[in-house]
Computed example of a mutant assay.
Amino acid sequence: MIKPLKLLLLLCFLGPYQVFPQTWELGISAGGMAYQGDLNQHKFYKFNNLALGGSVKRNFDGFWSLKLSVLNGKVSANDADSDFAQDRERNLNFYSTITEGSLLVEFNFFDYGLNFGQSRITPFIFTGLSVFGFNPKTDFRGETYELRLFNTEGQTSGEAYKTISTSIPLGAGVKYRINEKLNIAAEFGFRKANTDYLDDVSQRYPNIAYGGTRAALADRSLGQNKLGNPATPDAKGIQRGDFRKKDTYLFAGITLSYTFVRQNCPLF
């Protein structure tokens, strides 16, 4: 005769199991990265660079989850491609790698999962906090320059902007549970950066006369030079950026994730 404890253990292995929503997910992401700021004020949808990432997510139930993610991509802009004559005359450009780590809270609008009554597809929203590194560069006269090192807006050494900052991600998407273990999600998110120097441009041309490479990087305008031009002594200090206090970068992409499920005894 089989004892009750042995019978219960046997049922655990042979009987049906229940998938609980309190599970872990590992994901990989791919998509595009875009930038909006002093050198691209209008076309926030211009996703012109690749971005890749990974994530670990804890699902607390069918609605709420907490995600730790990393993302690596690139942002760039060039005044020469602008639709506006004043931007093309300014003639600035930059590119920068973005390396981001984020802690995100995610909310599903539908009870998401494979249990009875749950939905296999749901829209979702997310927000949280990100820390990211950047380093704006430009290619000029056959050389690559790290723009921060040249204090292009007249910063002193102690006032040079930092290349590590924070941002507030805000975004939305749609996810679908393919089967018990695989999920696919499409998302779009803004990152409002806590810096205005993602592109090395913020406010005004410097109020000091530069020379050499430093001057050439600070003022690459196609028209009248704005740094120390004797014919225009009052031109220094005029507007260089758009005077908005912060830059923004964006990510849109697809995430494929693997859910770790656990087998539990059926409830009687």
Rank of each mutant, 00 (worst) to 15 (best):
K162F: 15
K162Q: 14
K162V: 15
K162M: 14
K162Y: 15
K162T: 14
T163D: 13
T163G: 12
S165G: 09
S165Y: 10
S167A: 09
S167G: 03
S167H: 05
S167C: 05
S167W: 02
I168G: 00
I168C: 01
I168N: 00
P169G: 02
P169T: 06
P169Y: 01
P169M: 05
P169C: 07
L170M: 07
L170R: 04
G171N: 06
G171K: 05
G171V: 03
G171H: 03
G171A: 03
G171F: 01
A172G: 11
A172Y: 09
G173E: 01
G173S: 04
V174C: 01
V174I: 11
V174G: 03
V174S: 02
K175F: 02
K175P: 07
K175A: 07
K175C: 08
Y176V: 08
Y176N: 05
R177N: 11
I178K: 03
I178W: 00
I178D: 01
I178F: 03
I178S: 00
N179T: 09
E180H: 08
E180F: 02
E180C: 05
K181H: 15
K181D: 15
K181C: 15
L182T: 10
L182M: 12
L182S: 11
N183I: 03
N183K: 04
I184Q: 00
I184C: 03
I184A: 04
I184V: 12
A185S: 12
A186R: 05
A186C: 09
A186L: 11
E187D: 13
E187C: 12
E187M: 14
E187Y: 14
E187V: 11
F188M: 15
F188A: 13
F188R: 11
G189L: 08
G189D: 06
G189W: 09
G189V: 12
G189T: 13
F190P: 06
F190A: 13
F190V: 13
R191P: 07
R191S: 11
R191W: 09
R191H: 14
K192H: 12
K192N: 12
K192Q: 14
A193M: 09
A193D: 06
A193H: 08
